[in-house]
Amino acid sequence: MNLDLFDDALEPPPARQDLAPGAVLLRGRALAQAPQLLAAAEGVMAAAALRHWLTPGGRRMAVAMTNCGPLGWVSDARGYRYQSRDPLSGQPWPALPPVIAELAVAVAEEAGYPSFRPDACLVNRYLPGTPLSLHQDRDEQDLRQPIVSISLGLPAVFLFGGLSRSERPARWPLQHGDVLVWGGPSRLAFHGVQALAPGRHPLLGEQRINLTLRCAG
Rank of each mutant, 00 (worst) to 15 (best):
R59V: 12
P35I: 07
V181F: 06
G79V: 09
H191R: 04
W93A: 02
Q17F: 15
P128H: 07
A32T: 08
A62S: 06
E11L: 15
D137Q: 03
L163E: 14
S115Y: 06
A41C: 06
G192M: 00
W53F: 14
I209D: 02
G22N: 04
C68N: 06
P70A: 13
A197V: 03
A46L: 08
G28N: 05
R16S: 14
P13R: 12
Q83L: 05
D4Q: 15
G205F: 08
R138Q: 12
I100N: 02
E11V: 15
W172E: 13
R51M: 09
Q17C: 15
L50Y: 08
E11F: 10
R85F: 12
A95W: 08
W73R: 02
P87E: 11
L122W: 01
T212L: 03
R200S: 13
D76E: 01
F158R: 03
G112P: 00
V105W: 00
L37W: 08
A40F: 11
L103V: 05
V179G: 01
L188H: 06
M45W: 05
A15N: 12
A15G: 14
V179P: 03
G72S: 08
L196C: 04
S115R: 13
M45Y: 01
W93V: 01
R85K: 10
S186G: 02
P87M: 11
Q145S: 08
L19P: 09
A189F: 11
V181Y: 08
G161M: 04
P35G: 05
E140N: 02
G184P: 05
A34R: 15
H201N: 13
L132Y: 11
R214L: 04
A120K: 01
R85Y: 10
D178F: 01
R125H: 03
L152S: 10
I209S: 02
R138G: 07
D86A: 02
G153Q: 07
I150H: 10
S84R: 12
A77W: 08
D7C: 13
A20V: 02
T130R: 05
S89Q: 11
R27D: 05
A104V: 01
R117D: 04
I147Q: 00
D4F: 14
S84L: 04
P21W: 00
R214N: 01
L143N: 08
L127T: 15
L122F: 01
P114H: 05
G177A: 04
D4V: 13
A216E: 00
V193S: 03
P118M: 12
R78W: 03
Y82V: 13
P94H: 09
N67Y: 11
E167H: 14
A48P: 09
A40C: 06
P169K: 10
S133F: 11
T212M: 07
I100L: 10
E110R: 13
L174A: 04
Q207M: 09
P12W: 06
S149W: 06
S84P: 14
V181R: 09
P92M: 10
G205Q: 10
R125T: 06
D119P: 03
L213H: 02
G28E: 05
E102A: 11
